[in-house]
């Protein structure tokens, strides 16, 4: 019954493992960049928007428009538009390094919105408390927002990683490398259905594991709903 699987694995196992590791590498680097820039942008956006604690429409409006622009361009077109930038930054418009450029751009937009939402869900009294304890602006972010929103942030990051994995499979069209490239080249263009299924199953399990890990981490770090002895 599993002959098709063993045959496929014997023939493509090495390529699958390499592709999978490449995908992990691409997603890890792009997520790292997205998390740093997107978290900063998300905090700025939520605090500086109209009605925010440090209302500053001149900063919030352009940031919001930029995020919307990135999110409204279909990813496959973004890959093409970004090619010159990728060539400038990493010296090539193909392969996993070029893919990281596009993935980071889209990742920043995703993380920005998720962080903005996580902060919007914080009890507004937190800012009053921070102010009454005469926290500096930096302390408001590091000691209040990032600590109180960390459960929601971890869930948001998990969701962003999963989105980046999905986007990373599209980079196959620019020979972007990773498991998506293998699925497209060998699975789709050569019409190897068993290979496509192996990859689908593998990725499904992978995404499930990431979500499980993310949810478990969020539960560990978010004490808002935990009992005395847990």
């Amino acid at each position: 019954m599993f002959d098709w699987f063993t045959q496929t694995w014997t023939r493509f196992g090495g390529q699958i493992v390499t592709g999978f590791l490449e995908t992990c590498y691409m997603v890890a680097v792009s997520f790292g960049i997205s998390a740093v820039i997107g978290t900063a942008a998300g905090i700025a956006l939520s605090l500086c928007r109209r009605g925010g604690v440090w209302e500053s429409p001149l900063l919030a409006a352009p940031l919001s428009v930029a995020v919307n622009l990135i999110r409204s361009v279909p990813f496959i077109l973004l890959l093409i538009i970004v090619a010159p930038l990728a060539r400038m930054l990493v010296g090539t418009a193909y392969g996993i390094y070029a893919s990281m450029v596009s993935l980071s751009i889209v990742g920043v937009a995703i993380v920005t919105r998720l962080v903005e939402q996580a902060i919007a869900d914080i009890n507004p009294q937190l800012f009053q408390t921070a102010h009454s304890l005469s926290a500096s602006r930096r302390q408001v972010i590091t000691e209040f927002i990032l600590v109180e929103a960390r459960g929601a942030l971890i869930l948001g990051y998990t969701s962003a990683i999963i989105s980046l994995i999905a986007y990373s499979t599209v980079v196959g069209v620019i020979a972007g490398g990773g498991i998506g490239y293998l699925a497209l080249q060998e699975g789709f263009y050569m019409w190897n259905q068993p290979l496509m299924w192996v990859i689908i199953i593998l990725m499904t399990i992978f995404v499930q594991l990431i979500q499980l890990a993310g949810s478990a981490l969020a539960r560990t770090f978010d004490r808002k709903g935990k009992g005395r002895n847990s």
Binding site: L126, V147, E148, R223, K224
Partner: peptide, 25 residues
């Protein structure tokens, strides 16, 4: 210092960390 009606504690910090927070700041 201010004490609010709604306590205004930080829920992701232990009781000890809540009390020590003004000193940390």
């Amino acid at each position: 210092s201010t004490v609010f009606q709604g306590f205004s504690l930080l829920y992701n910090r232990s009781v000890l960390e809540n009390v020590a927070l003004p000193l940390k700041l």
